[in-house]
Design a protein around this nucleic acid. Structure first.
Length: 313
DNA sequence: AACAAGCTCAACCGCGGAAGT
DNA sequence: TACTTCCGCGGTTGAGCTTGT
């Protein structure tokens, strides 16, 4: 087979030998890689340019940070992924020294499973259907009527029947708090103790996206600041304008965009939360490239919920 | 100790888009 | 405008390693 780009040549495939690595490193440090297709020829390698590029970017680059991901990096990945989806290259830009491949592998091998274990859909960061029924227990009143974990309510948050102190960004934490504040109908065994314990354990991680004014349990101030910087970076990247929205708002909006674009994003109720809420007519103060590219138009629906969700400060 | 199952991660594949002709 | 080439990205694969039985 071989790559279409190098099918004419006889190229070696598979793992790289130390000698090949050395050749590639030596060549690139001396000449750079302005044209990958010519690199193998000049470096004396029986590889295609694509393979050389991959090897350099993912393994040989001197600025690579290797080793396990820190908790901070993990939080960043989750937060950015919630906004950008599977744009690994974009996500990796927020993690100096990490490659898209590394981030992707870490996501698939680790984070994804964590999310699933928490009953979250790793694609949408929403509760999986099974978990929804678990959390909502089939009981009645007061609970988030949408069943969508992305629906969050502010403590001072205006409207609706939700008087529950939903201040969280984390779906898991939300479920946990709700269960413990009676905001959700736990029912008899609708929300297991073990699950609550698990969520409690994970709360610190999820707290990463909590509004800054709220303080974040389990995260010290520098961490919060660092986290905040990451979120701001994403905001800049997505051309956010206007008042600073929470990471969650970005998430909701971006996810909604994804849903509108039919990208198999299960965000059925997000718009009702972010835009709908209690009616109203404020248009979101977003100009997300992401959204433009996703759906071509921005359904600046209704609702003053956007304002309600903005930063406190 | 031997085997199976699960996991990690480097590498490949195929596609889309940009640039050049 | 149409075509070709190249680059970069995301999805997928599979070899090697680890863990459990």
């Amino acid at each position: 087979m071989g790559h279409h780009c190098c099918s004419k040549q006889k190229v070696k495939r598979g793992l790289w030998s130390p000698e090949e690595d050395e050749r590639l490193v030596r060549y690139i440090t001396q000449h750079g890689h302005s044209c990958w297709s010519s690199v193998p020829k000049h470096a004396g390698l029986q590889r295609c340019g694509k393979s050389c590029r991959l090897r350099w970017i993912n393994y040989l680059r001197p600025d690579l940070k290797r080793g396990t991901f820190s908790e901070q990096e993990e939080r960043t990945i989750i937060d950015v992924h919630r906004i950008l989806g599977n744009r690994w290259a974009q996500i990796a830009k927020h993690l100096p020294g990490r490659t898209d491949n590394e981030v992707k592998n870490f996501w698939n091998s680790c984070i994804k499973k964590k999310l699933i274990a928490q009953g979250l859909d790793p694609k949408t960061h929403n509760l999986l259907p099974a978990s929804k029924s678990l959390l909502h227990g089939g009981g009645g009143g007061g609970a988030n009527p949408s069943g969508n974990n992305m629906a969050r309510f502010r403590p001072n948050g205006g409207g609706g029947a939700a008087a529950t102190p939903f201040t969280i960004s984390s779906p898991a934490k939300g479920g946990f708090e709700a269960a413990h504040t009676g905001g959700m109908p736990c029912g008899n065994g609708g929300f297991s103790a073990s699950m609550a314990a698990f969520m409690d354990e994970e709360a610190a991680m999820w707290a990463s996206a909590v509004e800054p004014g709220m303080g974040v349990a389990g995260m010290d101030l520098p961490q919060q600041q660092q986290q905040q910087q990451q979120i701001q970076l994403v905001q800049q990247e997505t051309a956010v304008v206007g008042p600073r929205p929470t990471a969650l708002m970005l998430t909701d909006v971006a996810a909604t965009a994804g849903a509108m674009a039919g990208k198999s994003v299960e965000m059925v109720d997000v718009s009702s939360v972010v835009y709908g809420g209690g009616g109203g007519g404020a248009t979101a103060a977003f100009d997300l490239d992401l959204m433009v590219e996703s759906c071509g138009m921005f359904c600046g629906g209704a609702g003053n919920a956007m304002e309600q969700l903005q930063w406190d400060c």
